[in-house]
Write a protein that binds this DNA or RNA. Structure first.
Lengths: 164, 164
DNA sequence: TGTTTGTATTTCAGATATGAAATATATGGA
DNA sequence: TCCATATATTTCATATCTGAAATACAAACA
């Protein structure tokens, strides 16, 4: 019994009432939504002891995954999947917490560099065991071939959404 | 070239820096986030002419997919994947727009019934062609066997997240 | 009956996210 | 040079969402 069952049941009724309604994409889209909400909530709960949100975590980790630990707000927006107005706010918060540093670029003065601070790096090292444990538990029941297949299909789906 | 490439690239760097970091679940979680944002934005854009949001659309469609077009806020919260405090607000808006009706239950006076109105039904009939077109375009590049496999794997993933 | 415990919904304050406009700088011609 | 257009970021008003507390009723039972 999954929390998704009531949703699926209601999609079935919709299909009966609207013969043109395409079940498969509708189910996929709603599964994505359910999964995202769940993953987002779990991540927020896990990160609570460190006083950062899932969105802030994503910013820190995108900087961490970059040579030089530095990105511009616009690169960060793409990597973290946030709108640029939101990046400004998140970066403000992370600066206030001392986890990143904001410096002006001199090569292009429109640009801003956001760099992981020493404290930001230390926090990542600190929460990393908890993050790894959560991530591992999330796929614990799936075989490597299944997760690889899921990755492939999700990328194909994303590619389709982004065509044109 | 996908908008996901920069993210994936940064996850690869993270794996190099943190050998314990499990790539596969991290990639899946971030793909889910990217997909959700995209689907959510596209749905909002498509629905704009009708003056409703993606979240409001989900409420309407969950009522539409129910015998009697009626649900309680708590059932709606589960079906639509929203927190109950949010259902109250969304239902308020939909009532103001005349798309649903709120009535007290007499069998259990704590409960509230939210019912699709005549105008709500008419709006669904009206936007249905655009909804179907969007949904179909979203999986246009995938074979039925692939979407079925994706559905199966997403359900397995969700099941894993919800164990315990 | 009265009391306790549980469930359904709403309220409220604060967090989070958004679009559109504003600001500042860059770039490529005329 | 001057101008038009493009890019990067922020600001601001508003929309959206959340947790926690408050409210209202139900159900079980001493």
């Amino acid at each position: 019994m999954s929390s998704f069952d009531p949703t699926e049941q209601r999609l079935a009724v919709t299909c009966r009432r609207q013969p043109a309604f395409p079940r498969e994409p509708a189910v996929l889209v709603r599964l994505i939504k359910h999964l995202y909400k769940r993953v987002h909530d779990d991540a927020n709960a896990m990160l609570k002891p460190w006083g950062i949100s899932h969105a802030e975590y994503n910013i820190l980790m995108m900087l961490y995954g970059t040579e030089g630990y530095t990105l511009n707000p616009s690169q960060l927006a793409e990597a973290a999947g946030e709108k640029s107005a939101n990046i400004t706010r998140l970066a403000d918060n992370l600066c206030d917490k001392g986890l990143i540093e904001r410096t002006a670029s001199d090569e292009d003065r429109r640009k801003v560099s956001l760099t992981l601070s020493r404290a930001g790096l230390a926090m990542i090292d600190d929460f990393m065991p908890a993050v790894c444990a959560l991530l591992e538990s999330q796929t614990a029941g799936m075989k490597p071939a299944e997760t690889a297949q899921l990755e492939r299909l999700l990328k194909k789906f994303l590619g389709q959404l982004e065509r044109d």
